[in-house]
């Protein structure tokens, strides 16, 4: 072995950029382009007048950028029958979002707390069943739920869609908080019990204040999830409360005659805006949310 080794020349300091390194950066650059292309095209298209879109190049920068299409998308684009722009959908989504996020996190954290720290009979079975349910497509539940809500008189309404989001958010929220509480030192819980704190006192005064990071993750997860929902809003929210995603689809896909691609793209960007802001604003928290949500089961 050393006989061979001695034939080798004295070692040299390696160069900083090897060909492999160049290849790596080329790969990253090209894939990054693929991921950025749609966002770029959305932005430039939304800033061009229709004439330029018809003649020009999809990738070209706008000759004379204008926000006309944005204004039109926000205030006067037509969603089927009415022409009041996507702003209606924006505010509908907001009205759905705020109570849904709050209530689903409240109930999810309480359930997760009860299932993790209080050794109740059947808790594991309940939790396991919820995990299975998290994977089941909505189509299985939708029809009976529609019937139940119309039977109770709620029908399609804001309250209905909030309840629906709470129901379908429950498995993930429970999982999130159960795993978090289970990772805390159990001595903390025991100490609180020895001090005589009751079930809800421990929850409100000890556990939730410690769960701030999980609450942030849950808010991010639920905000993007509920904002991006299409099918539940379509079925349960009712005509007056249709969320932004449904309105957007109506604007783009139910146009008669020539389509205003600039308006479509402006409306699309407006719909994507909130999740994008949450995503870029939250940085690593979003990744943490994925990681926490990904350990389903």
């Amino acid at each position: 072995m050393t006989a061979v080794a001695q034939l080798l020349p004295a070692s040299r300091r390696p160069k900083r950029m090897t060909p492999a390194r160049w290849g790596l950066y080329a790969f990253i650059f090209i894939t990054a382009l693929y991921f950025l292309l749609p966002l770029y095209v959305m932005i430039v298209t939304s800033l061009k007048p229709m004439a330029e879109i018809r003649q020009g190049n999809l990738l070209a920068l706008p000759a004379a950028p204008s926000i006309d299409a944005w204004v039109k998308a926000w205030t006067s684009a037509c969603t089927g029958l009415t022409c009041q722009g996507i702003k209606i959908g924006f505010f509908n989504s907001l009205r759905i979002l705020v109570p849904s996020v709050g209530i689903s996190i409240l109930i999810g954290s309480l359930t997760g707390y009860a299932l993790s720290l209080w050794r109740l009979p059947g808790a594991n079975i309940l939790f396991g069943a919820m995990m299975v349910v998290a994977f089941i497509p909505y189509q299985v539940f939708i029809y009976p739920l529609v019937r139940v809500f119309s039977f109770t008189g709620l029908g399609q309404s804001l309250l209905t869609i909030v309840i629906i989001h709470t129901i379908f958010g429950l498995p993930t929220m429970t999982l999130l908080f159960r795993n978090y509480f289970a990772s805390l030192p159990v001595e903390l819980f025991k100490a609180a019990r020895v001090d005589g704190a009751g079930f809800y006192q421990i929850y409100a005064l000890i556990m939730m204040p410690m769960a701030t990071p999980m609450i942030v993750v849950a808010v991010i997860l639920q905000t993007t999830g509920i904002w991006n929902d299409f099918i539940l809003g379509l079925i349960f929210a009712g005509r007056d409360n249709l969320p932004m995603t449904v309105q957007l689809n109506n604007i783009v896909n139910s146009t008669q005659g020539e389509r205003a691609y600039n308006v479509d793209m402006a409306a699309t960007l407006l719909t994507a805006l909130l999740p994008l802001v949450v995503y870029f604003g939250s940085g690593r928290w979003f990744v943490r949310g994925i990681a926490a949500g990904a350990v389903k089961g």
Partner: peptide, 15 residues
């Protein structure tokens, strides 16, 4: 190592 300058050699080539 073993009388050979390995300052910049790969770990596998150092014996």
């Amino acid at each position: 190592i073993g009388g050979r300058d390995v300052t910049w050699a790969e770990p596998k080539d150092r014996g």
